[in-house]
Amino acid sequence: MEVLYNPKKFFTKKEEVSYIPALIILTLNGIISAFLAYYTIKTITPMLPVEAHQFMAIGMAIGSVFGFLTPFIKWIVLGLIFYGLSSLFGGKGSFKKLISFIGYGFIPLLIGDAIGGYIGIEVLSSMRGLTIEDLVKYREILETSLATQISAIVSILFLIWAANIFIFAVASSRNIKVKDATITVCIPIGLWVLYTLFKVVSVI
């Protein structure tokens, strides 16, 4: 738990390099994502014509698998970005160490996804009995809803928390200054936050 509130100390004294903690965190994250994809398609399927149901069954399988893999893809992509940017600041640590460290940064995202998923299930449950025409109208209502905005803000808060862990993970694994690590992390995460804020603001 130290990594959540004192990541610098956690990474400084951490000497062993192992993928296992990261993989456990990401697997839990993947399970939540996969379940949300499955639940979303299952809720929408009855609203579609009977002829489309068999295609939705295939979509449910593909969505679940893709949902499960998404955190792992984010992990690798962020790792590559962090590795590249940190190299500009003279970073020397291995890529393996980097991604094993940044894996801990997905703990806040896991908590955020769990809370966001719960809200998502509540919203999906309120959609039962709608027709496909209703669904289109409901999507518009949903995009401008307070629930969506709060969900986005919560998501940004947890992303900031994750970025906090990423900064010390990069600094420690790549042997660069905290200031340089902050720049390395804030560029991609900042863009991510800006994108999330843009989505919320654009529909208001």
């Binding site: 509130y5 004192n6 990541p7 610098k8 100390k9 947890f158 900031i160 928390w161 906090n164 010390f168």
Partner: peptide, 13 residues
């Protein structure tokens, strides 16, 4: 909580 934790971690750092 998030803000406190982030703040605390920087203070310790």
């Amino acid at each position: 909580l998030v803000l406190v934790v982030v703040g605390y971690s920087w203070k310790r750092a």
